[in-house]
Design a protein around this nucleic acid. Sequence first.
DNA 1: TTTCTTACA
DNA 2: TGTAAGCA
Length: 128
Amino acid sequence: MRIGELSALTGIPRRMLRYYDEAGLLIPDRSANGYREYDAQSVDRALQIRGLIEAGLPTRVIKQVLPCLKQSRDILVAGATPETLALLEGERDAMTERIERLTRSRDAISRYIGTVRRMRLHEVSVAS
DNA sequence: TTTCTTACA
DNA sequence: TGTAAGCA
């Protein structure tokens, strides 16, 4: 299938699909006219890549981990080299930090919302 | 019509 | 990421 169809199937913008190609994450075949030609497997592959990117993994890391995901959507143990493992540990820690920052932000926002609501309630009761 | 590359906001 | 240009 061509890029337009893969885009429709995955919901991933064609722009991003070309970016995955440039980044070496998902390299399609090329038809005679130069159009990118994707196989059915590319659907899962593209979805996996998007998931990893949304999780905040740098493309360089994804590029290294991707071979481990080649088959199914589960991780292939055989493809895990010590270097890859070390890289992933670093990413995991960075992810944990991000989660903690997000948690603090969320809690701060929750407190703010609670405060504003209490103020509104008082205004209403005083007015009526 | 759809896709391609390159470049800029 | 979006968009525009100029092709094939």
